[in-house]
Amino acid sequence: MPDDTVSEWLDFAEDLDPGMYSSLDYDLTHDKPMELDALNGSVVRHADDVGVAVPLNEALTAILPPWADGSD
């Protein structure tokens, strides 16, 4: 990765509107189908393949399935 990747993403995040939220949050709070596997599950699978730790994605993938499939 380029040396300035972290600073670029931090700059991007600082410019976000404080009221913004993720599409997963929107889906969860509006009873919409969640793209949990496509968004977080794929990150977990790829990270496992290349040996990278992604604990937040692992946690979301483990915790959210009951809501993702509508069985909450």
Rank of each mutant, 00 (worst) to 15 (best):
E58G: 03
T29F: 15
D27A: 15
Y26N: 06
L24V: 08
D49I: 03
S23Y: 12
D37N: 10
I63D: 12
P18M: 08
A53E: 15
S71A: 13
A59Y: 15
L64P: 00
E8V: 07
D69C: 03
Y26M: 06
N57A: 15
D37P: 00
L36G: 01
P55G: 13
H46N: 05
V50R: 12
N57Y: 14
A47D: 10
V43W: 06
W67P: 00
I63E: 13
Y26I: 12
L10K: 11
P66T: 09
E14V: 02
P65N: 04
P2V: 11
S71I: 08
D37Y: 14
E8Y: 12
L28R: 13
A47V: 03
P65Q: 04
D69M: 07
S71V: 11
W67N: 00
D3W: 12
I63F: 13
G41H: 04
E35M: 03
A13N: 05
L60Q: 03
T29M: 10
V52E: 14
D27L: 03
S42H: 08
W67T: 00
V50C: 06
A38I: 02
H46A: 11
G19D: 10
V50H: 13
D49S: 13
S23N: 07
D72C: 04
T5K: 07
H46Q: 09
R45V: 01
K32I: 10
